[in-house]
Simulated scan of single mutants.
Amino acid sequence: MDEFLNGKMKALVASGVGEYELALDFPIPECGPDEVLIKTEGCGICAGDLKCYKGASRFWGDENQPMWVKPPFIPGHEFLGHIVKIGENVKGFEIGERVIAEQIVPCGECRYCKTGRYWMCEPHATFGFQKENNGGMSEYTLFPKTALIHKVPQDLPIEKALLIEPYACSKHAVDRANISNEDVVVISGAGTLGLGMVTYAHMKNPYKLIVIDLVDERLEKAKEFGADIVLNPNKEDVVQVIKDLTEGYGCDIYIEATGHTSSVNQGLQAIRKLGTFVEFSVFGEDTTVDWSIIGDVKELDLLGAHLSPYCYPFVIEHIANGSLKTDGLVTSTYPIEQWEEGFEKATGVDGDFKVALLFDK
């Protein structure tokens, strides 16, 4: 494939908060002996991308935390494409194969990597936020030596393939909860990631699967994906409903997938004593809670969920065979030239689930 040998590509480049610009002549990365270069097929727009664009301190730092991003960088971590170059030391892949990489680019040397917990790699390089590991909002993307690459079926529709990364994160969050068939499970948030949790949690056959969201259209999709009960906090006292359904005790498991502070406090009220609370979201602001609920009042198991370790093979297989429901989640796509419209659409202003940028559109 010599189509890219002019050395230039289109790429969305972030240089500061809100300072994103489409470059038409960004250098195509050189493929080293241990690397893989792909022609990007598409890239989903994540809530994390939007929060970064708008300047959330989690990315750009504040008085309590250092800046995590390393501009100028190309955003995007929900991407996949076809291999166009392979380094001479790379084995197991061929030109033309369709592939995806996990968001984390582990160092392979820290204590977490060496004990198999690579997703918590201490240097924590990731695609889409640092200039050393540019993301997928560009025509070509480089997978470095330690990237974790997975093959994607060639015939898997792009609308389904774009959900591999978010669904892998959803799977890890649900796995952290260790759901049994006796559990009343509440998932708060029915966006793309929350719905990924719903369709996977349904496979665990919980006693009751309850989904909470403020948008009725999302709740309808949650029922389609396997929810037994859906609740809208704008229309009913969801904490009281959950307690009424559980003889006053509360749910066994609460998975927070909204990134809103109200959902955290809601969960602490809705969950029973000795319950399991899984926090998944990236927040745009600090959350204040009565910390004594977690300890002295209820003695909760409070668990975090980060990225998607060991989840990609399962997710790829079960999206492909239909066990994980995906219909109707990718609702809008745009060419890279219309990235601003795509970012605006991805805020949910028109009720979209997943919005993506496509490179052959």
Rank of each mutant, 00 (worst) to 15 (best):
R117Y: 13
N133P: 07
G128N: 07
Q130G: 12
K114E: 12
W119N: 11
N134A: 06
G135D: 02
M120T: 11
E122C: 08
G128E: 00
P106N: 03
R117Q: 15
V105Q: 03
Y118W: 15
F127V: 03
C113D: 01
T126K: 09
T115P: 10
N133T: 15
E132R: 02
E132S: 14
G135N: 10
N133D: 06
P106L: 00
G116V: 01
C107Q: 00
T126L: 02
Y118N: 07
V105F: 03
C110D: 05
N133M: 13
Y112A: 04
P106G: 00
K131R: 12
Y112M: 12
E109G: 06
M120Y: 11
G108I: 06
K114L: 09
F129V: 08
E109Q: 14
H124E: 10
E122W: 14
W119H: 15
H124P: 01
G128W: 08
E122P: 04
T126A: 07
C113F: 12
C107M: 00
E122A: 03
A125G: 14
M120G: 09
T126D: 03
Q130W: 00
T126Q: 06
C107G: 05
M120A: 10
N133Q: 08
C110I: 08
R117E: 10
K114C: 09
C110E: 03
H124F: 15
M120F: 14
Y112T: 05
G116W: 11
N134K: 13
G108Y: 07
P106F: 11
W119R: 02
K131H: 12
E109M: 13
N134T: 11
C113R: 12
G135P: 09
Y112I: 03
G108D: 00
Q130V: 14
E122F: 15
C110G: 07
P106A: 02
E122G: 05
K131G: 09
K114H: 12
F127W: 05
G135W: 08
K114R: 15
A125R: 10
M120S: 11
G116F: 00
G128H: 05
C121S: 00
T115K: 11
R111P: 06
C107K: 14
R111G: 04
Y118P: 06
M120P: 03
C113Y: 09
P106S: 00
G116Y: 07
T126E: 10
G135T: 07
R111I: 10
Q130R: 07
Q130N: 05
E132P: 04
H124S: 06
M120D: 10
R111C: 06
P106I: 01
A125Y: 14
Y118L: 07
F129K: 03
Y118D: 02
N134Y: 11
E109C: 06
C107V: 02
W119I: 01
N134H: 14
C121Q: 12
C107D: 09
C110S: 07
C121W: 09
E109F: 15
M120W: 13
T126M: 08
T115F: 08
E122S: 01
Y118S: 02
Y112N: 15
G128F: 02
R117K: 15
F129L: 00
W119L: 02
E132L: 06
W119E: 06
N133F: 15
Y112P: 09
R111S: 08
R111A: 03
C121A: 02
N133V: 15
T115C: 04
N134F: 06
E109D: 14
C121L: 06
A125E: 04
